Computed example of a mutant assay.
Amino acid sequence: MSTSSGCYWRIAELPYDSWRLGLFAPNYMEVWIETADAVDVRDRVFRRAMSGIAAINTPKDLKGDPRGWPERPGAGKGKQVLGADLPRLIYVRWQSLVEPQTYEAYIVIPEPTRQAMVKGEKTFCQADAKWIFGYRDVLTVGLAPGGIAKVWLMGACLAPIDVARVQGTVVKEGPDSGRSGGQYALPLDPASKAYIEKHGIPYGSW
């Protein structure tokens, strides 16, 4: 098996034990993740590497701004993908609770991203004023209304790298693959509901 560059990175060569998959949503744009699955370069599938509520801020004063993506996103809510080689594909199926609508997206991880994951860099951490040697070992996925999935490669004290922006598709069966009778996982937080009623959903900003 080979990638477009002619080789696969093997897990024995990884400079860390595991990489992390994290997910978040813009302010007030609440998301329930039905599943986030990872496929590594050896075509092994790690199902439900993450599920549940995505990381989000819902300021009660309604002054949070959900438009666009942050310049330096957080790591999101997630887990370490234990035992995986470098990622080839991320599959996410999620409920956009503010619409409401259910989407799925297939996110192909390009070879340059995998190469960046095993390239260590010396960087300065402002929080404790120390230099460290670190790796970008976190894939962060932002999920927005309209089925938008945006992906960054992150690492402690290292600048994030844009990986991909994917337009997901509507899951025709609805939430929980039709097993919930059209019922979404959670009711909206009162602050999210109030923000949507006042300002609407800023489609096109993501």
Rank of each mutant, 00 (worst) to 15 (best):
T3F: 00
G6F: 02
C7S: 15
R10A: 12
R10C: 12
E13H: 07
P15L: 05
P15A: 08
Y16M: 09
W19I: 01
G22A: 09
L23G: 04
F24N: 05
P26R: 06
P26F: 01
W32N: 08
W32E: 07
I33G: 04
I33W: 07
A36V: 09
D37Q: 02
A49D: 06
S51R: 07
A54G: 08
A55Y: 13
T58V: 07
K60T: 11
D65M: 11
P66H: 03
W69G: 08
W69F: 13
P70K: 06
R72K: 14
G74W: 12
A75W: 14
G76P: 02
K77M: 13
K79G: 07
K79W: 10
Q80P: 10
V81F: 05
L82D: 13
G83H: 04
A84D: 00
L86H: 00
R93G: 00
W94Y: 14
W94D: 10
S96T: 05
P100T: 11
Q101M: 15
T102A: 14
A105Y: 00
Y106G: 01
T113C: 11
Q115W: 11
A116D: 12
M117F: 09
M117H: 03
G120D: 01
K122Y: 15
Q126C: 13
A127F: 14
A129E: 12
F133K: 13
Y135D: 02
D137S: 11
V138D: 09
L139T: 04
G142K: 10
G146L: 10
G146D: 08
I148Y: 09
A149D: 04
W152I: 05
L153S: 00
M154A: 11
L158V: 10
D162I: 11
R165E: 15
V166R: 07
V166A: 02
V166C: 00
G168S: 08
T169D: 13
K172I: 09
P175E: 01
Q183P: 06
D189L: 04
A191D: 10
A191M: 05
E197I: 04
K198F: 01
H199L: 03
H199R: 10
G204L: 15
G204Y: 02
W206P: 02
